[in-house]
Amino acid sequence: MRTPHPESPPPLRTRRHRVLPGFGLTLGTTLLFLSLIVLLPLSAAFIRTAGLTWDEFWAQVTSPRVLASYRLTFGAALAAAAANAFFGVIVAWVLVRYEFPGRKIVDALVDLPFALPTAVAGIALTALYAPTGWIGRALDPLGVKVAYTPLGIWVALTFIGLPFIVRTVQPVLEELEPELEEAAATLGATRLQTLARVVLPALLPATCTGFTLALARGIGEYGSVVFISGNMPLRTEITPLLIVTKLEQYDYAGATALAVVMLVVSFTLLFGVQVLQRWFFSPERHGR
């Protein structure tokens, strides 16, 4: 967590970059959109919780049921994002670099989790993974239960998160300059060494971005999870469901209290990854 000295930007760099025009215009546009669409509405949630005293707020967000739901929500989202980071990079690599029958179709399919309404995804996955479904039937004799267990939540979140990794890695892979790989090969590196030392590091920033997005998306996901999770208190109840539960009881303050906790945790998570990424993958380290 401590600041490494070499990373502090040399003054020369800043001066050089401001040579490009449009900083004020683009920053202004960005901040305007951000404030109107995101920050102003979200502040409404924070202000709603102001109706609670600190003790009430604390009691709301640390009850055993809520704590169990945090563990489940963040754990499942983390596991799903990790699985996606591994498989997603391979899928992206295969799509960009290999020629095989049906490549275009697979490429198109990657967006499916996005285009499918989350409720439909939840229904379809539950139908597949329930003990009577195509996949569930095969797993049942092995003693593996997917639907209505935390494993089912992982399946749903993996499904939801896949496009994030593939679609962030894919463009970077397409733009990757082959000269680097050629140079590595010319210098005597085996293909595996080239992949591990040249290609993977170049993909790391995009993979990180994709991982973070998949993770963040997984934490907030509601529509698909409620169908497959079974919603058992303390076991398979996710935090967004608890928020809905509170809303159904007209408990806006309680609902927004949980929402604020999720917001703060997610923000910290995203921010942490962002800072790490800036340290490790800043342009200097790329040797540009």
Binding site: F23, A45, T212, I219, L263, L269
Partner: peptide
């Protein structure tokens, strides 16, 4: 460009993803 608060800005841009869709709708209702 490089500027102060760049990480914060990038994170804020990502934030709508981390917000549960339920909350996203709720804030507009609020």
């Amino acid at each position: 460009f490089d500027f102060r608060g760049k990480s914060v800005l990038t994170t804020l841009i990502d934030l709508p993803f981390a917000v549960s869709p339920v909350i996203a709708g709720l804030v507009y209702v609020l």
